[in-house]
Nucleic acid binder design. Structure first.
Lengths: 201, 201
DNA sequence: TTCATGCGGTAACGTACGGTACCTTATCCA
DNA sequence: TGGATAAGGTACCGTACGTTACCGCATGAA
């Protein structure tokens, strides 16, 4: 894991995220950090190999922090905490960038799309399903289909702010926007939209 | 609105959806339907112009059917019907195709991304907010923030199946998968996940 | 010190792209 | 029927890309 390798990956991320996969040239990437294209071809073999390494690295690193999430005895608090973390991950520039390109190139690189899903959203769903499973064992819920429930919750979180981020319609959601989106998701997930809703405005 | 124009747009859609914007050449598009590149450049001016026309047309046509949706006195039934229609729209190959490319190119064509959102997801949210507003006037609900509620509901629907479709991980969701996703979304939106949940399995 | 080995830089190759100049052909009005 | 006008086809231009051949240079062993 040389330093040069990391340097190349960082420059590649910057370039790919800015211009997309097809529109980014090896020359531009190497132009950012100096040196020659041989650096890239010696290390990654091809443009495709460089991109695959980048996707793998970013998706893996982004979701890693979720693995330490545990059910702490309070389902609502756990959902809120996990939701916050997940929302922040999904809105992080690097994951949004990878998402954009994977979406565009998924059909041409099916293995990459699958790997991205497994390391990213798939892992989030699995992790949440485990949390819900533990909560059921602790008597905090009696829902049976933990996997579907996790799917829905993760989908809600992604739906709220992710589309805007992905389409680059708004620069950055504020902290309070994120908090409010997570709050809505948790509340609806547990109670539905109306029941016990704090009537704002 | 000549026939030739429609023919070009259809071929362009096919090519763009298959290979992405940057990787699709004018030659390939015209190769599908015969003739010469002058047809495209006379009608659309540039590759960008062709793509913009395509996005506008597809996003506009896809969401058009939503404009006839009305609140019919039963909120749950209305949500279910609107949800079904929306899910089908979001999963339609043409909208998935446009979404893929818009996501990838949104940063370089901000106006296109905005237009896509306004004609697509934005219109869906607005339409649903109106339905909820009417439902409130009819006494079927007392929720106050119709816009946020609509946002969440649309997000839930998108979250469930859309990601899989967009990443091309599964060929086509079955009718029953769509129905079950809509059912989950409606149920959770109204009641939360557990309350009164039909215990499947 | 010498020689082998492998990496880094340069320059180029072959290809393919978006766009256009130019010529041909069809269409339409008088 | 004849002439003008627009559209279609062909061939090409300049450019830029991914990749590689080739060469110099540093490094480490003997």
């Amino acid at each position: 894991m040389s330093n040069r390798r990391a340097e190349i990956l960082e420059a590649a991320a910057f370039a790919f995220f800015e211009r997309g996969y097809a529109a980014t040239s090896i020359d531009v990437i190497i132009g950012r950090i100096g040196g020659s294209k041989r650096n890239i071809y010696n290390e990654f073999g091809s443009k495709q190999g460089l991109f695959a390494a980048l996707v793998s690295e970013i998706a893996d690193a982004a979701l890693l922090s979720l693995d330490h999430e545990k059910f702490d005895g309070n389902l609502e608090a756990t959902l809120r905490r996990l939701g916050h973390r997940l929302a922040r991950i999904y809105l992080s520039p690097s994951l949004v960038g990878v998402y954009r390109i994977i979406v565009a190139e998924g059909q041409r690189f099916p293995a990459l799309a699958q790997a991205f899903y497994d390391k990213g959203p798939g892992r989030a769903v699995t992790r949440l399903a485990e949390v819900l499973h533990n909560a059921r064992h602790a008597g905090q819920t009696n829902l049976v289909d933990c996997m579907t429930a996790a799917d829905v919750f993760v989908g809600m979180l992604r739906g709220n702010l992710h589309l805007n981020a992905v389409l680059a319609l708004h620069a950055n959601p504020t902290e309070s926007e994120i908090a409010s989106a997570v709050e809505s998701a948790v509340h609806i997930f547990l109670n539905g939209f109306e029941v016990g809703r704090t009537s704002d405005q």
